[in-house]
Design a binder for these strands. Structure first.
Lengths: 127, 127
DNA sequence: CGGAATCCAAGATGATACTG
DNA sequence: CAGTATCATCTTGGATTCCG
């Protein structure tokens, strides 16, 4: 009888090129249109819902709520609801969220810093 | 008469939190569902269209072509079409593409490596 | 204040068929 | 082989309204 140890699990480490790799879902959450921006803002500390909405220009309340839920369900964001009226809810990064935010911010910072080069490359590629 | 120097351009460096920052578009291209995977595969060397399609499980030819065009127009991917029949087209990373791929792969690798932790965090967050 | 619910517009994606 | 064209579908996103 063959034993089925943990080493038989093909996803002990992710394989992004496989269609059914769970990494793809997580990746889509953190690289989603608003997910990445939420992480970046939360990296600067705890924020309330309205503060996030105001800092992330262009996000709707609907998408912000949806994005926060996805990040929370992945364990990247912690949600603390204070039982007061009017409601007061605070969002912050979990330790896991801080770790992934390092990588996310590395990407975002590189683009922001190199934007002049990037815009020039776009013009050149358009020729 | 006021001179309009390059320092007047608010986007000499990007500001991702601004709705109209060009960085957002570039970011969406490289973090798109297939864009990220294309970059990762091209990091291993030059590939033909069909090779990319085969390696990136689940991508359709339509989306692959569209993704490659976006990355090419941003200056991340170089497209070389050999004038033979049947057609032979080779894709590779530009120097700019390699630079950004460092960051993209950093993120992807972290997720793949930490997938076990991530899946456990998901279960815990679901409680 | 922080959402949830609903409806609708816009965009992303896919299957298929077709072409140089 | 490497796409493009077309159509159908699914997802994303936004505006509005309502609620505890």
């Amino acid at each position: 009888m063959k034993s089925k140890g943990i080493f038989d699990d093909p996803y002990r480490r992710g394989r992004l090129l496989s269609a059914d790799c769970p990494s793809r879902q997580i990746l889509r959450h953190v690289t989603s249109r608003w997910g990445l921006l939420v992480l970046i803002v939360l990296r600067t500390g705890t924020h309330r819902f309205s503060a996030l909405r105001d800092q992330i220009e262009g996000v709707s309340e609907r998408m912000l709520a949806q994005t926060l839920q996805a990040l929370e369900s992945d364990g990247f964001v912690s949600r603390v609801s204070l039982p007061v009226v009017p409601p007061h809810v605070e969002y912050s990064l979990t330790p896991l969220g801080e770790e992934i935010c390092d990588r996310v911010e590395g990407l975002a910072d590189w683009i922001e810093t190199n934007l002049p080069r990037l815009l020039q490359a776009q013009r050149q590629a358009a020729e």
